[in-house]
């Protein structure tokens, strides 16, 4: 996962209390990290939220993986955010999400997109690993954990 998660874009404690806010914080963080042109930010936020309308990416207890393909990125980019209080993400099981992984991939690379979701899922299916992410506390600590995932 550390291959495409941008260390400087990780948010160890999200401020937002709702889905749109979380998506906005994460996408804006990727923008500040230089992952795409600033002018693309709003359109990428819209694309991720549009995808959420088709079905929440909160597919596991406590975890959401908002994602989209977008022409504004030349390669797979991603970031992570943690909300210690949890956010209602419309998750399958009705519980709040605490760990958020945002993935944006180029429109013409569906295999890269699939493999990124696989890589994220492979590590997040371990409850102990997720607990470590939730309690890491800082961006560098989170990034270090990603390298171990």
């Amino acid at each position: 996962m550390s291959d495409f998660i941008f260390r400087e874009a990780i948010i160890p404690e999200l401020k937002s209390k709702d889905k749109e806010g979380v998506v906005r914080e994460l996408v804006e963080s990727l923008s500040r990290a230089g992952c795409f042109k600033e002018s693309e930010t709003e359109d990428i936020i819209r694309a991720v939220l549009k995808r959420e309308l088709l079905g929440s990416t909160g597919i596991w207890p406590g975890i959401a993986i908002p994602h989209s393909k977008h022409p504004g990125v030349g390669k797979l980019v991603g970031t992570m955010g943690i909300s210690s209080k949890g956010v209602d993400f419309g998750s399958r099981d009705g519980t709040p999400a605490f760990v958020f992984i945002l993935i944006i991939s180029p429109v013409d690379q569906p295999v890269v997109h699939l493999r990124a979701l696989e890589a994220v899922s492979r590590v997040l299916k371990e409850p102990a690993y997720v607990q470590n992410l939730k309690s890491a506390g800082t961006g560098p600590a989170l990034f270090e954990l990603l390298g171990k995932g």
Binding site: R92, V111, L117, E118, S121, R122, K125
Partner: peptide, 12 residues
């Protein structure tokens, strides 16, 4: 299990 199927990265 959606958690398990997420590991199936089967392309077109």
């Amino acid at each position: 299990s959606i958690m398990e199927l997420m590991l199936v990265a089967a392309p077109e």
